[in-house]
Design a protein around this nucleic acid. Structure first.
Lengths: 216, 216
DNA sequence: TAGATTGTTAATCGATTAACAATC
DNA sequence: TAGATTGTTAATCGATTAACAATC
């Protein structure tokens, strides 16, 4: 019997995303069935790790046969809540915010950018990739219409925390923070950080060291 | 006696970067000495964890007193190899590549963008933020002059692997990959992935779940 | 049936947490 | 000296890896 899906180790969750990528590509290739061993070669994860991770969600495979690619893809998509649209707002219409807003990878994904916010009066009201730039101070009212559940912070560190607070006040459920600063959100709000400087620093550490795999 | 610095757990290395950020801010505030307990509050890491992590590098503190902020900052900067310039090339002059090239966070950092590459003839030869856009096919020759040791991949997934190969051939020692694809590099090359879609997928998983901290 | 492959249990590994003797 | 805080050792925790009985 599958364990309650609400207790899956964080590293396993993170790998589910890798499996999804793999399965999508297998579907495109027309592969119908795949074993954990072959899938492992495909995505660089040991076969027992894959089986273990999948076992947190239920039983999807047939002994002696493997997994039905389409079926597994569907189940994982469901588990990750990717079978519904996620509406995303970006705060910060600078270089990074603009690049994220125009990110082509969102085309065939459940993530849809529905609004951009900034505090710069000369930007507010302008358009960026079809989207109007709104005043960050009005996010609470505006998000009643936008109904976004994910917010991306793409502002300088100084204002990262106030932006986070504004996002939470506006009803966002998850935050992706690109500012190189620690932000605090209530426990029920999901938060992840993407810190470019930190990544480069970690790389710098590994330069000229004995090989020890730095991968995330 | 400090352990050989070449065997530090990966999670600890990643936290060193957090400590650096904290220490820099403490120096700016004019704080001279800090205990692991207060530093822990400041950066959200338990005090015993901090002491443990620092112990991998040597003995920096004084019992009963704490750590000398400037001294610790210097030693960590040294350990992370941040006391020398790191020359960085970006491959991909699209939205993301351009945003990264213009990233203000690099102003007072040891990371210096020294070149941008693309395969699009209409972009090659143009300038982006003072930098000429070079032909990716000539990276091997051009990097003899640029002498970059870090390469950033900001191209679509399809070409990520060939770009990685080109970077390695050009003598790069570390790769930061923004393409949502697995790339392979020799063991002595450091590699980290930043995958926007993956981050969003993990956030989607956590939306509407019992609080379980999704932070990296 | 024989061969393949799953899901799970048990063993191993490595990192985090706790506790404390050493020492400023 | 008494109080504070380090660096390290030992205990705990959780995830990865290995192994295998169940089963297609």
């Amino acid at each position: 019997m599958p364990q309650s899906a609400s207790r899956i180790p964080q590293p396993a969750v993170s790998r589910l995303s890798i499996y999804l990528r793999c399965l999508r590509s297998l579907v495109e290739q027309g592969v119908q069935t795949i074993s954990s061993a072959r899938m492992g070669q495909h995505c660089g994860v040991p076969h027992h790790q894959i089986r273990k991770d999948l076992s947190y969600l239920g039983e999807f495979g047939k002994p002696g046969i493997g997994y039905d690619v389409k079926h597994l893809l569907e189940r994982l998509t469901e588990t990750m809540q990717l079978n519904r649209e996620h509406r995303v707002v970006i705060v910060g219409a600078g270089n990074l915010g603009a690049a994220l807003a125009g990110y082509a990878g969102f085309q065939r994904s459940p993530f849809r950018i529905v609004g951009i916010f900034d505090n710069n009066l000369s930007k507010i009201g302008r358009r960026l990739w079809e989207l109007e730039i709104f005043d960050i101070h009005q996010i609470e009212q505006i998000n009643r219409h936008l109904r976004a559940d994910i917010g991306i912070i793409a502002v300088p560190s100084d204002s990262a925390q106030e932006v986070a607070d504004a996002l939470v006040a506006a009803g966002i459920r998850a935050v992706l923070n690109f500012a190189p600063a620690r932000v605090h959100v209530p426990a029920e709000i999901a938060l992840r950080d993407v810190d470019l400087t930190r990544e480069l620093e970690i790389l710098a550490f590994h330069i000229n060291r004995v090989p020890e795999a730095a991968a995330s």
